[in-house]
Design a protein around this nucleic acid. Sequence first.
DNA 1: CGGCATCCTCGTGGATACTG
DNA 2: CAGTATCCACGAGGATGCCG
Lengths: 140, 140
Amino acid sequence: MSAAPRIEKPAKAMAPGVHFPPDVFAADCPTRRVLDRIGDKWAVLILILLARGTVRFNELRRLIDGISQKMLSQTLKSLERDGLVSRRVIPTVPVAVEYTITPLGRTLHDAVDPLRIWAETHIAAVEAAQARYDAAPRQG
Amino acid sequence: MSAAPRIEKPAKAMAPGVHFPPDVFAADCPTRRVLDRIGDKWAVLILILLARGTVRFNELRRLIDGISQKMLSQTLKSLERDGLVSRRVIPTVPVAVEYTITPLGRTLHDAVDPLRIWAETHIAAVEAAQARYDAAPRQG
DNA sequence: CGGCATCCTCGTGGATACTG
DNA sequence: CAGTATCCACGAGGATGCCG
């Protein structure tokens, strides 16, 4: 997953002495992890779904088109680890497990929403640009 | 890259008849591609960087910690294809190439910004949750 | 039902070398 | 300088099978 050890910064990839503010551009910036988490499409999808209400494991599986059981399980686990989602086990005969978004998770969901809006608003422009680009007569 | 053929929906992964609103959860939803593009950490990083001003190829390379020449080139190309970034070739002796964010790209940048804010604001909470989770005495 | 373990494929992306 | 092309290693992630 994106949360996995992704630190590929030997700190020698750059000339010594070259330094820029410890910004998002530094490989070890924690903010980068959040970006990675957002990059995880399954995570975002799950978050959006859970923002609408508590859902059970297999129900999520049914709702999210194309997700494998492995990825669902894995993603839920890291979401839980990040405190974005909470897990509740109901010890019925065949066990049932509910997933609910946490307050923290909801704040992230709110921050992600502008992106969804953007996508819906500008997707046409993007596709038009792509068409234009693909049709370009190979400008030197 | 994320923009690559990522369509893994045979439309038969679900029982026939089972249908949900053509939402973000459908694998073929165009919105999903935007999410994928955001998921591309390099793309986001480049976008943020270019939002601050026009930058040249190798300058970007130097600025972004850990990016390979291949990924930079590749990412810039798809950003250009998406109409988010524009490329300008200056035919000097050794050729120079400038990359500039487009108005469309800027709107995306603006939509991404809340995420950066969120990250900076809540990263501590997330890390705390992780620490708690990792220290959990294996409940149930 | 929920979920972990195993296997195995195949795409992502780094390293390297060459060109305009 | 700004790429493109090739090779290759690694790991994400699907498929399958088993367990509590």
